[in-house]
Amino acid sequence: MDHVERLVIFRTETAAFEKAVRRAFDLGEPVPAVPSCPGWSVTDLVRHLGGVHRYLGHVLRERLTVPPDPAGLALPEPADGPDALADWFAQGARELAELFHELGPDTTVWTWSAEQTSGFWLRMQLIELAVHRWDAESATGTPGPLDPAVAADAVTQTIEVMAPARRGWQQAPPGAGERYRFRRTDGPDSWTVLFSGDQVLLEAGSTAPADVEAAGTACDLALFLWRRLPPTALRAEGDAALLPHWFTLVPPV
């Protein structure tokens, strides 16, 4: 996907997230819990995502090349009430989309990754928004699947970007040569991942034997890697015990 395609889906996912949270709020008190985010209600989920959008809006608007100083960062808080909270989210997401449109993919800005571009943030935020839309929908019923292209990109991004970062942030144990293969059942893609010491290596096109192969739709693979689905949601061949071990090698944040 390119920047334009991602932005179109970002706007679609924004509308779907807003619809899901308004449906949850319409049920009244208590606000529904989010099963996939233990300890969170839909209110907590909206505040989290809306806060992230405003934080990144500040980074992009100011073209920051260093992380903002939290002490000097005053972001607008939502007014009280479910309707006001949903409106607050929608405004922040809309403003963030406009900034992504204005800056394009190649504007230099601070990120927590080696890639210091506005395009990095759109890719990251589209994936996070799609997963949290799934979360919000799961609070009141059966969630719709992630867009297949977004889901496949989420698998790649998790392996190439998130896994090395999380290992560094959480001081994960060194890899001992564990080789995972994730195979998509609704498309031709597969991802082979080798943990070697401190490295996470995506082995493109690898046919080397894997310790475990996990198969599922792109959506199911992405949701597993985001800890939304259990290992049993995937079809495993080989050492199935290595699937939960993934989260030892790639600790959640």
Rank of each mutant, 00 (worst) to 15 (best):
R22S: 08
A24K: 06
F25C: 10
D26C: 08
E29K: 07
A33G: 13
V34M: 01
P35E: 04
S36R: 01
C37N: 02
G39Q: 02
V42M: 05
R47A: 10
G50T: 11
V52A: 10
V52S: 04
Y55P: 05
G57E: 02
H58K: 01
R63V: 14
R63S: 08
L64C: 08
L64S: 04
T65R: 10
T65I: 14
T65P: 11
P70R: 00
P70Q: 00
G72P: 04
G72T: 00
L73V: 03
E77W: 12
P78H: 08
D80W: 12
G81W: 07
G81V: 09
P82W: 11
P82F: 10
P82H: 11
D83T: 14
A84G: 13
F89P: 14
Q91K: 11
G92S: 13
G92T: 14
R94G: 15
R94V: 14
E95I: 06
L96K: 03
L96N: 09
A97Y: 02
A97G: 15
H101Y: 13
L103C: 09
T107N: 01
T108V: 15
W110L: 02
E115H: 12
Q116N: 12
T117A: 07
F120T: 14
W121P: 04
L122V: 10
Q125C: 05
I127Q: 03
V131I: 11
H132Y: 09
H132F: 05
R133G: 10
W134D: 00
A136R: 06
S138A: 09
T140M: 06
G141W: 01
T142I: 03
L146F: 02
P148Q: 02
P148T: 06
P148D: 07
P148I: 08
A149T: 15
A149M: 06
V150F: 02
A151Q: 03
A152V: 12
A152Q: 04
A154L: 08
A154F: 08
V155Q: 03
